[in-house]
Simulated assay, not measured.
Amino acid sequence: MAGDGGGAGEGGGAGGSGGGVVAPVICEMPHFTCSPSLQGRQVCVRGCVTDADCPATLACASDHRCRAKQCAADADCPENQACDVSDGACVRKACASDADCEGYCVLGTCEEKPGICFLG
Rank of each mutant, 00 (worst) to 15 (best):
A2T: 08
A2P: 08
G3H: 06
G6E: 07
G7P: 02
G7Q: 03
G7C: 02
G7N: 04
G9S: 11
E10N: 05
E10S: 06
G11S: 08
G12C: 11
G12W: 07
G15H: 13
G15T: 09
G16D: 02
G16H: 09
G18T: 04
G18P: 01
G18V: 07
G19R: 10
G19T: 10
V22K: 06
A23E: 07
A23Y: 06
P24G: 15
V25M: 15
I26D: 02
P30L: 04
H31F: 07
S35D: 14
S35G: 05
P36H: 05
S37T: 14
S37V: 13
L38H: 10
L38N: 07
L38F: 08
L38R: 07
L38D: 03
L38E: 08
R41Y: 13
R41T: 09
R41V: 06
V43M: 12
C44I: 05
C44E: 05
R46M: 14
R46I: 09
G47A: 14
C48I: 06
V49Y: 04
V49E: 13
V49G: 03
V49A: 13
T50P: 14
T50I: 08
A52K: 01
A52V: 00
D53A: 12
C54W: 00
P55W: 02
A56M: 00
A56F: 00
T57S: 01
T57I: 01
T57W: 02
C60Q: 11
C60A: 14
A61S: 15
S62H: 07
D63F: 10
H64S: 15
H64D: 09
H64P: 10
R65V: 03
C66T: 08
C66Y: 06
C66H: 04
A68F: 01
K69Y: 02
Q70S: 15
Q70C: 06
C71I: 13
C71V: 05
A73W: 10
A73D: 13
D74L: 01
D74F: 04
A75F: 14
A75C: 12
D76G: 10
C77R: 04
P78V: 07
E79N: 08
N80I: 01
N80T: 02
A82Y: 05
A82P: 00
C83W: 06
V85L: 06
D87A: 10
A89T: 14
A89M: 12
C90D: 04
C95P: 08
A96F: 10
A96K: 12
S97A: 11
S97I: 01
S97C: 05
D98F: 13
D100E: 06
C101L: 03
E102I: 08
G103R: 02
Y104H: 13
L107S: 02
L107E: 13
G108C: 09
C110R: 11
C110D: 03
C110G: 01
C110Y: 06
E111R: 08
E112N: 02
K113H: 00
P114F: 03
G115K: 00
G115N: 04
I116S: 08
I116G: 05
F118D: 03
L119R: 14
L119Q: 15
G120W: 12
G120M: 10
